[in-house]
Design a protein around this nucleic acid. Structure first.
Lengths: 183, 183
DNA sequence: TATTGTTATACTCTATAACTATA
DNA sequence: TATAGTTATAGAGTATAACAATA
């Protein structure tokens, strides 16, 4: 049998162990020329290698992995860390302002703040000036945790600096500053 | 009433229009000091602004948005484009090799290739040398489409170059080359 | 009528485990 | 026993529409 083919699947959520009644069969074109696939020739990225956008994507994946590794003990995601930082830097900020600053959807940010509040890191208070607002503060627990997150985040950024070199680190910080603050 | 609070939610999937029986009430600390939240003072990013990792994340989000804008007419995501590029550059490659090169899970790549095959862009053939393999090729349709995607992807990368400047573009290409090829 | 926050929903990604066929 | 591909599933993240309360 072939590697279990199900072409043009329907993406349905079937039963847990679906019965494999119909064995997929297809005409096997032996005349596939020199298609060895026996891991000898190195693979090429093609046009991808010329696109800076792809390099940045790969760098970002590496950074999230490194960040998660450094902060694994705290169970804090990059997005959660960014929200804690913004609340810490702007005590009494409201949710929409945080969402806009970080380019997060307000609905998603609401759930994220729910989570942080449930862990006792963030406190929601009613605004005295506009009753539609919540104003956000770090709790003492939140402040204490952020104090421990900061060195870990800095270590993760240092690992990045070590990977690309200190000069490139400075160059990137200057070159990419345009992206921080706008969408 | 307050802004409809449901603190420490349970993340359950309730009925479409859940009855809002319990009106959330909480002690309103008026002594919230100078927490105005009336959009006057500019917000600060806090420690975030010092982390290159955050800048790269923001840059990557911008790039995906720009890429999707340029390729909207083709309904091709960045990930799909990357797979088309790799198959084009390595005719007869097998799925696992593509997954490893692009750091995509093989399960996810299988579904992605399903989609591309369903659109008639990619052809799966049985390997002549190892019957566990599929070998992947672009169809004529896929090759033709990639020919039209290439300029669009290049335009998206040019927009990035225009945003950061040509010198920074070259610097980044050199500095980030370490991330292309490994995890 | 517009705005803040919430809810519900859907879709994509990611990650994992288990399974079939093959080696 | 190990590997390629698939399936199922669960968890995040994202995007949107609609609603309540408030302005």
């Amino acid at each position: 049998m072939r590697p279990a083919k199900a072409r043009v699947r329907k993406r349905i959520a079937g039963p847990q162990r679906a019965a494999r009644t119909t064995k997929p069969q297809r005409s096997v074109p032996r005349a596939a020329s020199g298609a060895t696939s026996t891991r000898a020739k190195p693979l090429a990225l093609g046009d991808l290698s010329q696109l800076l956008g792809y390099s940045i994507r790969r760098a970002q994946l590496w950074i999230f992995k490194e960040f998660s590794r450094q902060l694994a003990a705290f169970e804090i995601s990059p997005a959660q860390f960014s929200v804690l930082c913004v609340i810490d830097a702007n005590p009494g900020v409201n949710q929409l302002a945080v969402a806009q600053l970080l380019s997060i959807e307000r609905a998603g940010l609401g759930r994220l703040v729910d989570h942080l509040e449930g862990r006792g890191l963030v406190r929601r208070s009613a605004s005295a000036v506009n009753r539609r607002y919540y104003v956000l503060y770090l709790t003492d627990t939140g402040t204490a945790l952020l104090g421990r997150l900061r060195p870990a985040a800095a270590a993760s950024d240092k690992a990045l600096a070590a990977k690309i070199g200190p000069r490139a680190y400075k160059e990137l910080q200057r070159a990419l500053s345009t992206f921080v603050g706008d969408a």
